[in-house]
Simulated assay, not measured.
Amino acid sequence: MGIFQEFRQFMMRGSAIDMGIGVVLGAALSSFVDSLVRDILLPPIGLVYSRMNIENLHISLSGRTYSSLAEAKEAGAITINYGLFISTSIRFLIILFVVFLVVRQMNRWKKPHQHPSDSMTNKECPYCCLSIPNRAVICPNCSSSLEKKQSAERTTYPRLKIK
């Protein structure tokens, strides 16, 4: 098989297309969150901190004082731009939270009939003593039937034959 046929199969498999869509959506989400942080969230925070632009916060390593980061860069000063770091950190946390919400919703759509707490509760198989899902009827580990046979006196389980 030629390299172009292999590449075509790789592209058509779906994972490459899904990855491309994810990159495009990620870039769109990033620019949206960037605008949200820079234009909506940071100005009120700067207003609270005595009418300053947070992105202008910096420390000049040359010892001189500059009124803005742009002025320091124009003068060629070496600066530690902790205001830009704060802004980028806020953007990162918002993007992380949005991705969490999307993944959480996708997981809900995959299993609409299953409540999250159902998957977390387990019981112990009476035969092999391993943890199994609460609603299991047959143990996935030892293949034992977990339905109890009720007798008048006690609950009995089929015996395992050991050779």
Rank of each mutant, 00 (worst) to 15 (best):
S119F: 04
A77H: 07
L146D: 00
S62E: 10
I40F: 06
S117V: 06
A28G: 03
R154S: 10
N56C: 06
N122M: 02
R135M: 00
A27T: 11
I90S: 06
T155S: 03
K163Y: 13
E71P: 11
R135Y: 00
T155W: 03
C125S: 01
R104G: 03
Q150I: 04
Y82R: 10
M12K: 12
V48A: 11
Y127K: 02
V98D: 07
G46C: 04
E153S: 04
S119M: 13
H113P: 07
D18K: 12
S117N: 11
S144C: 01
V37H: 01
I95L: 15
Q114P: 02
I59P: 06
P140N: 01
A136W: 00
I132H: 00
P116E: 05
L57I: 11
I94T: 09
M106C: 14
A152Y: 07
S151W: 03
R51N: 15
V98Q: 08
C142I: 02
I80Y: 06
Q105M: 10
A16I: 14
P43S: 10
D39Y: 05
N81I: 05
I90H: 15
F10E: 08
H115C: 06
F85S: 14
I95E: 14
Q105V: 08
K148Y: 01
D18C: 14
S143M: 01
K163W: 07
T156N: 01
G14W: 14
I17N: 12
F97I: 12
E71A: 11
S151G: 02
F32I: 09
I80P: 04
G26I: 04
S35G: 10
P158N: 13
Y66G: 04
Q9S: 14
L160W: 01
L36A: 09
D18H: 13
C142Y: 02
C139M: 00
L57H: 14
G63C: 14
C128V: 01
I17C: 15
G76F: 12
F10G: 08
M1R: 07
I40D: 02
W109S: 13
L57K: 11
E124F: 08
L96N: 14
E147L: 00
V103H: 15
L93T: 14
G46I: 03
A72R: 05
R104D: 09
G83M: 10
I162N: 08
V33M: 05
V48W: 07
Q150W: 02
R13D: 12
G20D: 07
L57T: 04
T65V: 11
L42N: 09
H58D: 09
K149D: 01
L42A: 10
M52R: 10
G83T: 07
S87I: 09
I78L: 05
K161M: 05
M106E: 10
